[in-house]
Computed example of a mutant assay.
Amino acid sequence: MVAFLLWLLLLVFCWPLALLALVLYPIVWLLVLPFRLVGITVTAVFSFLGAMLMLPARVLRGRPA
């Protein structure tokens, strides 16, 4: 909601810049999408590796002494 109000304010004060932002937003979103997907994948891989490395500690902690 705040972003929309800021865009309306930009539209009132500088309408060419606001229209340029409106046109370029989908293009920038498409260009950034692969980097977001790589970031999600890298985060998932690190989470998986962390879980695999912590698994022996969890198994040993659950076993009675």
Results as ranks from 00 to 15, higher is better:
L31D: 03
R58A: 05
L9F: 06
F13G: 07
L33M: 14
L19F: 12
A57V: 09
I40A: 13
V2L: 13
V45E: 02
R36L: 12
R58F: 07
L5H: 06
L6D: 02
F35N: 08
L11R: 05
L24Y: 07
F4Y: 11
T41V: 15
F46H: 09
W7Y: 03
L5Q: 06
T43G: 12
M52H: 01
R63A: 04
I27A: 15
Y25M: 08
L5F: 05
V12T: 10
M52K: 04
S47A: 11
P26N: 11
F35K: 10
W29N: 03
P26D: 07
I27G: 04
V28C: 12
L9T: 00
M54R: 05
L20I: 03
I27K: 11
F13M: 07
A3Y: 01
V23C: 15
I40V: 14
P64K: 12
L6W: 07
M1C: 12
A57E: 06
I27Q: 14
L33K: 13
L19W: 12
F46D: 06
L11C: 09
L30I: 10
A21I: 00
L22A: 15
L30W: 13
V28F: 15
P56I: 01
L20Y: 10
L5D: 03
W29F: 13
R61K: 14
L19D: 00
R36D: 08
V12P: 00
A18P: 03
I40H: 10
A21G: 03
L30F: 14
I40M: 15
V32W: 12
R58K: 05
G39T: 04
F48R: 06
V12A: 14
V32G: 01
L19E: 03
F35R: 11
A65C: 10
V45S: 02
L20S: 09
T43A: 15
L53E: 01
P26E: 05
Y25K: 03
L30T: 05
A51Q: 04
V28P: 01
F13E: 10
P34A: 15
V32H: 05
V59N: 04
A51H: 02
V38Y: 15
L11G: 00
A21F: 06
G62F: 13
V23G: 10
M1F: 13
P34D: 12
G39R: 07
F35D: 09
T43I: 04
P64A: 10
I40L: 15
T41Q: 10
L6F: 08
L24S: 11
P34W: 13
M54S: 09
R36Q: 11
F35M: 15
R63I: 05
L37V: 13
W29M: 09
A21W: 01
M54F: 07
V42R: 09
A57Q: 08
L53N: 03
R63K: 09
L9C: 03
L8P: 00
A21N: 01
L49S: 06
L17H: 03
P56W: 02
M1T: 02
V12I: 15
G50V: 00
R63H: 05
P64I: 04
M52V: 12
V2G: 01
L55G: 01
F46E: 09
L11K: 06
F4D: 09
Y25Q: 09
L19Q: 06
V59R: 14
